[in-house]
Design a protein around this nucleic acid. Structure first.
Lengths: 111, 111
DNA sequence: TATCTTACTATAAATTTTATAGTAGATATA
DNA sequence: TATATCTACTATAAAATTTATAGTAAGATA
């Protein structure tokens, strides 16, 4: 995953801007919609796939992995057959709620 | 410009989600950084280019055009030589400040 | 035996993004 | 006179990313 400037996120570059930091941690456009879903509670992969119109499984996997690495969400695997995987927000992830809420207000007002 | 599902924005599709509406109107990742700059006042193309680390002129032009079409900012051309072009936020654009502010808080806390 | 399920991967194709050079048109400099 | 400078972009090809599609494991079900 690359940052907003197109550099690998594990490269030693210093970003001063908090907005850029937030955008890099959140990841991609899909992350916002994953957040929207997870604020209402834990979800499985297939539930997210159905709820988010237009995501390919790869895009969803990539976004979830990125968010997991950045400790926005946790991934829990239940070794059943077929396997069950649940995604839920961490405190860090829950704290993004204010941003998404403001987006929702703005979108309802101007969209 | 395409929407978050990859469809052209002028296609007759209905989006119910306010978050998606907001994301589609804002446009791309660069838009957030353009907003960051314009909240401090009117800026010229070259000022934005210098202030936003890593934008290509094409990416900047594309983002500005998209934001202009969506009435987030206005573009004013002064017919001097060389020409001078200024970008400034509309009321709709100013109103995005809450979102960016929350991003900034979050980035400062967790980033 | 064939089919269904979940949570993904693999691959190639399609699309987007980026880097780089170039443009106008007047002024400034050597 | 020739060259360089400035701004705000465009054009183009190359590079990178994203998407669509098919496929996988591994047991349950009909």
């Amino acid at each position: 995953m690359k940052n907003i400037q197109g550099k690998e996120l594990d490269q030693p570059i210093v970003i001063d801007c908090s907005i850029e930091k937030a955008l890099n941690i959140i990841g991609s456009k899909w992350s916002f919609l994953i957040l929207r879903e997870l604020f209402t509670g834990t979800k499985r992969f297939s539930e997210l796939q159905r709820a988010i119109n237009g995501v390919s499984p790869k895009a969803l996997t990539d976004a979830l992995r990125h968010m997991e690495e950045n400790e926005i969400l946790v991934r829990t695997v239940y070794p059943t057959v077929p396997v069950k995987v649940e995604y839920s927000l961490t405190e860090k992830g829950q704290d993004l709620h204010k941003i998404i809420k403001e987006m929702k207000y703005w979108g309802a007002k101007w969209g």
